[in-house]
Amino acid sequence: MPDTLLEVHQLKKVYETASGPVEAIGDISFDMRQGELVCIVGPSGCGKTTLLKCIAGLLKPTAGTIRLADRPVTGPPESMALVFQEYGRSLYPWLTVRGNVELPLRHQKMDAAQRSRLVDDALEAVGLEHAGRSYPWQLSGGMQQRVAIARAVAYHPEVLIMDEPFAAVDAQTRADLEDLVRALHIERGMSILFVTHDIDESVYLGERVIVLSTSPTWVQDDIAIDLAPERDQITTRALPRFTELRTHVYEQIQRAKRGEAVRPQA
């Protein structure tokens, strides 16, 4: 496979709890290429967040390896940015919007002008160039999530990881933010790994949709989304192909919930 960016190989995560070990992730393997937008979708409680935390180097997997740009992930990698679902708890309320976006750049070797340019550029990319001096809590939920995205954009990561970022915003805002993610991917060529529980969202956004099984999790299906790269909330979602793909993903999730899928032999 050319230009493999992220490589997850036979990942396994077992939590030790008081009532014995709980296997959250059974065996997950997948690759992601440079410049791809991959959606991960699965039934609720299937260990999506656990998977992301392992990829982000925040959790130590029980077994298996993760490689980012050919380097093994053992702690939070340098070239990865995260956008969390809980935007209210991921932005720092004592810093302005600008301060939040700038924070991860502070220890990087660059002069103040360059840093300032990166922040301006990122705020512009998410349409918040006017809000730099506001505090996050003065903004709506959707705008706060834009700030979190701007922080990730300014960081110039090799891969952007988003953990159900739009689960807590209303439908209107959600559509706008989805288009923002598509725009960042198309215009800036960002590689994005997008986790969601929303089937429509995964098909609309992704070039590939990886369907996870219920816990202990493995990859149940890996579907190429052969829709045109230029997507539109109204026309794309009305395409027969969109409906087909959505139905396919939906059926896979239903199978996953019923536990019908067969676990791959490692």
Binding site: L58, L82, Y155
Partner: peptide, 12 residues
Amino acid sequence: SVMTETAQSFRL
């Protein structure tokens, strides 16, 4: 905890 994970992931 989320604020701490944010700081970790951006390697502050």
